[in-house]
């Protein structure tokens, strides 16, 4: 996007949430030569660019990262789309009212 038109720079900052720090760490571990590397930073970027400009602007920074990681790992056969689906349900189930008496 270098050289394109855009408005003034809004000098925003935010405190990173635990899941953002986790996503950052996943990418660091996957791109570390010690893991192969299983996924390079260029592949992370390619995965983000594949989303297209519409989704790019809808997602936050680390949302784009984790979505790209999941897609690239599925593409490379490191994880399977079905097992990711099952694991997502498992994660969500931990947060349902049944497991949380406060709700």
């Amino acid at each position: 996007m270098g050289g394109l038109d855009a408005g003034p720079v809004a000098r925003t900052e935010h405190t990173f949430e635990p899941w953002e720090n986790k996503t950052d760490a996943i990418v660091r571990l996957l791109s570390n030569p010690k893991s192969g590397p299983l996924m390079r930073i260029d592949e992370l970027r390619r995965g983000i660019e594949d989303m297209g400009p519409g989704i790019y602007d809808e997602l936050t920074y680390y949302e784009r990262w984790i979505a790209s990681v999941a897609n690239v790992l599925i593409e490379k056969g490191v994880i399977h789309v079905d097992e990711l689906g099952r694991k997502l349900e498992e994660v969500k189930a931990r947060h349902t009212p049944a497991s949380s008496p406060e709700h």
Binding site: W19, Y62, V69, E83, R94
Partner: peptide
């Protein structure tokens, strides 16, 4: 507790990917 709020899709995705790896 943070755990009491349902995670967004991408928060859950980060947990799921981490656990699978």
């Amino acid at each position: 507790d943070l755990e009491d709020t349902p995670p967004t899709y991408h928060q859950a995705l980060a947990d799921a990917v981490a656990e699978l790896l």
